[in-house]
Design a protein around this nucleic acid. Structure first.
Length: 448
DNA sequence: TCTGGGGTCCTAGGACCC
DNA sequence: TCTGGGGTCCTAGGACCC
């Protein structure tokens, strides 16, 4: 009942029967509430959502990320049937198509994903004291100190998992442990529909045999650096003097040392990485997410950006300019509908040789889209000094804050104010007739 | 691994000020 | 008139995540 699958083996390893029977009869043990966290991870989420929409996709290899496998793009989510052919998320669509030509390629339905994600979140919030979304398909739940109310916590988590699946039709994997980090790793250990509970106090021992790359926060670069230090498993890292790791990897090394020991037994107030969809996850800003709420818990994103990869590398100034204008407009629309302001604007490119570069500049205080476009054009002009074709163009706003309409009413010049009004009018037309119904004249680039 | 589209945080180095 | 030390802000880039 306490654990299933390979968690049984872990439980046996970490808490052998002999250790339990050593407790003397009649000795009462002071109850100290164990920190207990549950991590829930929706299995192949985008594919599962598409299958709810279209049951014909069930049982077939599916790739979400683009309807045309010959176009430039990447797999956002692959079904387990497709993964059997070597397809994985992040892979180029073209490559996925080569590996698995019989797969169905789907563009994706961001609005649906957001809706389902919110449904799962609401269900968890109704049954647990604290839920913190980590991304659109992952949730951390703090169950610490709830034994009296909820009974044995791993068993409760198991029931929650079944309930989420029954209510939403989405399969999910769950991990339970004394720290959110270990719960997350445990949830990923036996996907899909996995359930792993780590014995309290056994967090570091659970992580120890796993390859270093399985530790969240270790990417290809850190992995290579750690292997240099002779570290192959998470246990190897945990055994190393943190100061030594810091000298080799900087501040990140210190953080990884802590993680290798299981991480902190607490949840942050919010996962800042969840801000992306808290504010409006989606490709089409006009349709992104629910209207802004007065919820004081709402997390402000640190930045908002849009980017576009061209079907063929571009050096046509008109095409680049048109794309730039549309990207600025797109983020500007999100800022306006969310009543947000920004301090700086950055324009970035990926050149044909796959090198990235960016420049940024300070935004004028007024919410003046025309001035923003002017700044974006100046930044792009600097990037085009490198005489190479452009593969990808990106516009990002940083220093996001809540907009103070009042100040603007008094400070904006009449001219800027009327342009703000124009921007709002454009948003309103778009909300009725669609994003494509209206563009700045320079936003036409000949592509549909 | 042969590279999308969002995001996050960290850091080095320069500008500027006292 | 060849030049210290520190703090802070900004920019560009890197690593990582889903």
């Amino acid at each position: 009942m306490f654990s299933l699958g390979h968690a049984n083996a872990v439980a046996e390893l970490l808490c052998p029967a002999s250790a339990v029977s050593r407790a003397e009869p009649g000795v009462s043990i002071l109850f100290v509430p164990q920190p207990t966290f549950m991590h829930l991870d929706l299995d192949q989420f985008f594919v599962a959502a598409e299958r709810l929409r279209d049951p014909r996709l069930v049982g077939r290899p599916v790739c979400v990320g683009g309807a045309d496998p010959r176009a430039r793009g990447a797999v956002a989510c692959a079904s387990y049937e497709a993964r059997a052919f070597g397809v994985h998320s992040g892979q180029a669509l073209r490559h996925a198509h080569t590996l698995c030509p019989q797969a169905v390629f789907v563009a994706g339905t961001p609005g649906l994903y957001l809706e389902l994600s919110q449904q799962v979140r609401a269900l968890l919030e109704a049954r647990a004291p604290r839920v913190v979304p980590r991304s659109i398909d992952e949730f951390d739940v703090d169950l610490s100190g709830c034994e009296r109310l909820l009974g044995e916590l791993p068993a409760y988590a198991r029931r929650l998992q079944a309930e989420v699946s029954a209510e939403t039709g989405l399969s999910c994997s769950v991990g339970v442990a004394g720290t959110p980090l270990v719960a997350k790793v445990a949830a990923g250990a036996e996907k899909p529909a996995g359930f792993v509970a780590v014995v309290p106090g056994g967090e570091a021992a659970y992580l120890a045999p796993l390859p270093i790359r399985d530790l969240p926060g270790v990417g290809p670069v850190s992995e290579a650096q750690l292997i240099e230090l002779g570290v192959r498993t998470i246990g190897d890292l945990a055994a190393l003097d943190p100061e030594l790791v810091r000298r080799a990897l900087g501040a990140r090394g210190l953080d990884l040392s802590l993680r290798a020991r299981g991480g902190l037994p607490q949840l942050p107030k919010v996962h800042q990485t969840a801000g992306a969809f808290a504010v409006g996850w989606g490709l089409n800003p006009a349709a992104a997410g629910p209207p802004p709420t007065a919820d004081p818990e709402t997390v402000l994103p640190r930045s908002l950006s849009r980017e576009r990869t061209f079907s063929t590398d571009q050096d046509d100034r008109n095409v680049l300019d048109a794309a730039l204008v549309r990207l600025v407009e797109s983020v500007a629309c999100t800022l306006r509908t969310r009543k947000l302001g920004a301090r700086t604007l950055s324009v970035g490119v990926r050149y044909a040789d796959l090198v990235d570069a960016s420049h940024r500049g300070r935004l004028p205080r007024e919410l003046d889209e025309a001035a923003w476009i002017q700044l974006a054009r100046a930044l792009l002009a600097r990037l085009l000094r490198r005489r190479l074709r452009i593969r990808r163009l990106r516009v990002a706003f940083h220093g996001i804050s809540l907009r103070h309409e009042q100040r603007l009413l008094f400070n904006g010049e009449p001219d800027a104010r009327s342009r703000q009004a124009l921007g709002r009018a454009m948003d309103s037309v778009r909300s009725k007739h669609g994003w494509e119904s209206l563009r700045w004249a320079s936003g036409f680039d000949g592509e549909p």
